[in-house]
Design a protein around this nucleic acid. Structure first.
Lengths: 301, 301
DNA sequence: GTTCCGCATGAATCGATAG
DNA sequence: ACTATCGATTCATGCGGAA
């Protein structure tokens, strides 16, 4: 029977693994979130793909993704083209056009604004502080759970104390920023507004208690070329899936997408081609799972 | 003689006006900053261009721009594609590819993060809170004056007001603007920050003293619909030009680019096709000029 | 002189309705 | 069927007036 095995990591090439309709049946995935390896002029031994071949490398994989994604599901592609010889490369915007030719709808381009981006100084450009989160779907009536990502009204930094009770304020100050044990439902119940398409994760401990965040960022930062914080996949999971639905990351890397799915009570499926990541992924998942099951924690939804 | 007339507005079609090499000599413009009319499904009578024809409409104009831009000059294109039938349109990314074919170098894509974007709620998308500022050049060794945008308000206060005491300055501002006292004291304590490629104009009164900015925003915001604030062209003018250099806006609109050039001691040239804007533009320019010439004021660079 | 509250409004988007 | 118009929805910000 074509049944989807969830909470499982496959080690191999997405191009071949996702082709197996016995393992990945049609219309079975609720959300695909991934941050694929960036194009790189250097040798392709470490998962890098040559810029000139990036589109032709990605499109056959995207065909599989389109097959296995549910009709109302979403595909989020987190990517940013690097500069090459002083210019921004064009493979990402070419990929958008090709994905549309493949039948995908290009719904939106979210901007992930990384306020504390990698430092650096060059004569012809500033630091790159944002990445694209491209949203593709199969149908225009895709599923979207907007209420799950509503944010407190107005400027968070200036107004949150106003909406907090006196007791919460005192408790917050006394904690000295290191432990946000205050229950998030305190401010969640206050007036909230819809977000917009620029994602800024001001507070590192926005969604999760500090112990979860610390071990998750630790396991996602080590030895990985393109780490992203837990908040990024979490935000899209809350927006495009409900609990117990299935999230796929065909380029899992160090396992951040799986960790986010666990913490949000979603099912995960990951594919990773580089075998050296295996230990990292397994450590990350077991650590997050034990944290989730063993200790008191606060989660939104 | 092929001499460039500066501080002049031309009323007509950029496609034809910019073709005249007697009026616009080769290699004569230091910076082109513009926010062209967005593609619109509606009738093209009011400056709108059909999405399907946007690229073919823009490219011939861009050829003129490439001719008249100085070799080390920059071309900043502020644009954002609207949704159409639930999808983001692709004419902007197609335009990037075509401009590269025309010989432009696509150096960077700056993200202008508009915190106060237009409200709204829809089942398939959130509010659009960012626009693209695409940076094109003719050569990879273009001019860039990074120090001009790296100098924050802290240096501003010490350099420009060393003869004035802090209290004198606060008193001066307070005399002209009853709401500004608190903000000014906040600026004086600010540290320097390194710029990156996401533009956020948090402080409305960052560049100009309160009297200038108030009238300028009046000119560009109150009476007409302001496509962008003064800060946006100002930022790129400081980054890519020096004083007395020439800035061209081939789609001037209500005149914001010209106003910014005046306030920053740059020369402006504007082209606007819609004659109804003439009065607005002339009022805006004369108002800003009289403010600059008639009163004591303080400007960065 | 300062803070707070109320109100107007702006490069918007979707879906329904009318022609 | 296709196009044009209209109503409902939504929020950060600046401004004026009042306490």
């Amino acid at each position: 029977m074509n049944t989807l095995n969830v909470n499982k990591i496959y080690y191999g090439d997405s191009l071949f693994l996702l082709a197996d309709s016995n393992v990945f049946p049609d219309d079975s995935i609720d959300l695909i979130f991934t941050s694929p390896p960036y194009a790189d002029k250097r040798i392709t031994s470490y998962g890098g793909v040559h810029p000139n071949k990036y589109v032709s490398w990605f499109i056959p994989i995207a065909a599989h993704l389109k097959r296995i994604l549910k009709p109302r599901g979403s595909f989020i592609l987190n990517i940013k083209e690097h500069p090459l010889e002083g210019e921004r490369q064009t493979y990402v915007i070419e990929l958008i056009l090709e994905l549309k030719k493949q039948g995908w709808l290009w719904i939106e381009e979210y901007c992930w604004y990384k306020k504390n981006c990698f430092p650096g100084k060059w004569p012809n450009r500033f630091r790159d502080a944002w990445e694209r989160c491209l949203h593709f779907t199969k149908r225009s009536d895709f599923s979207m759970y907007q209420d799950a990502v509503r944010v407190p009204i107005g400027d968070w930094s200036t107004k949150r104390f106003k909406s907090m009770s006196e007791q919460d304020y005192i408790r917050y100050i006394s904690k000295n920023n290191k432990h946000m044990t205050r229950n998030v439902s305190n401010w969640l119940g206050k007036k909230t507004v819809n977000p917009h398409n620029v994602l800024v994760f001001e507070e590192e401990h926005f969604l999760y208690p500090s112990n979860v965040i610390e071990s998750a960022t630790q396991c996602s930062n080590r030895n990985h070329s393109a780490p992203f914080p837990l908040e990024l996949p979490s935000w899209f999971m809350r927006l495009f899936t409900e609990e117990n639905q299935v999230v796929l990351d065909p380029f899992l890397g160090s396992g951040t997408t799986a960790a986010a799915a666990i913490l949000l009570n979603r099912k995960y499926i990951g594919v990773e081609i580089i075998p050296e990541y295996r230990t990292q992924i397994e450590n990350c998942i077991s650590e997050v799972e034990s944290l989730k099951n063993g200790r008191k924690h606060y989660l939104i939804r």
